[in-house]
């Protein structure tokens, strides 16, 4: 198993409307137990990349392999029933349903007994125990993000796709969310993480990709990137230099 990457994206060109790609020729790999961050300016195509992998975009060309099996163009619900979990940035929980119903619904997509998995999630996220019978729409931002993570993990995926899990959260809540990811990755789950907060993401990740204008710009060890002065200037909170600032697509 360990020789095959959890996720192998090669030469992927995709968008929302046929003939109008948002990302082009993207290459990304995520190994077993590896946390990989995708950073880049707004409109770089980071979210589109995740959605394309999750089967929610129109794929023009390229290939996606998960655990060595090609999954390019496979319907989302089939993908997410076979080991991939995707947490969208917003509207990632069912607000009209209770926490319990959300978890049961999410757990239904794996064949195993759902209730034991739900139990496991409650021990992983003890916060959710207190709000178990509450409507998800009444949860705080941090609680919602934990619920969304729990919904993704309840089916025991091999690959977790996270779209800006800290967006809109208070800094402390954001830290809490990120800190749990290492725990998740340890048993071998591959995590592909898209983040605006590049510093935090690189601090956590093993490797990282920089995307701009829908293209691969840079790839490398996360720690190395953190200390790269040029990248630091552009993406990690330093002052922007006009020439290097990426234009929104």
């Amino acid at each position: 198993m360990s020789s095959v990457a959890r996720l192998d994206v090669s030469e992927l060109t995709a968008g929302y409307v046929a003939g109008m790609p948002i990302i082009s020729s993207i290459d990304v790999t995520v190994g077993v137990g590896e946390i990989v961050a995708v950073i880049g300016p707004n409109g770089a195509g980071k979210s589109t990349l995740l959605k394309a992998i999750a089967g929610l975009c129109h794929i023009e060309s390229g290939a996606i392999h998960v655990d060595g099996t090609e999954v390019t163009g496979i319907r989302t619900d089939k993908l997410t029933r076979s080991g991939i979990a995707f947490v969208p940035q917003i509207e990632n929980i069912f607000r009209s349903m209770t926490v319990e119903q959300n978890l049961i619904l999410a757990g239904r997509r794996c064949d195993k007994q759902a209730s034991s998995h739900v139990e496991k999630m409650l021990s992983l996220f003890p916060l959710l125990k207190k709000t178990y019978k509450k409507r998800a729409g009444e949860l705080s931002g941090g609680q919602r993000q934990f619920l969304a993570l729990a919904m993704a993990l309840v089916a025991e995926p091999g690959l977790l796709l996270l779209d800006e899990p800290t967006a809109g959260l208070a800094p402390i809540a954001g830290q809490e969310v990120l800190s749990i990811l290492r725990e998740i990755a340890n048993p071998g789950v591959g995590i592909l993480l898209v983040e605006q907060n590049a510093k935090a993401a690189l601090g956590l990740a093993d490797r990282a990709y920089v995307l701009a204008d829908g293209h691969n710009q840079h790839e490398g060890e996360a720690r190395a990137m953190l200390s790269d002065p040029v990248l630091g200037e552009i993406y990690l909170g330093g002052r922007r230099r006009g020439d290097h600032a990426a234009k929104p697509v």
Binding site: F94, Q101, I104, L105, R108, M151
Partner: peptide
């Protein structure tokens, strides 16, 4: 679970698909 499925799809079809529906 049929009920959950219907509620989920009526609230958010994309998220429903992401959850294997």
């Amino acid at each position: 679970s049929i009920g959950y499925t219907l509620l989920a799809v009526s609230e958010n079809p994309t998220l429903a698909q992401v959850n294997g529906i």
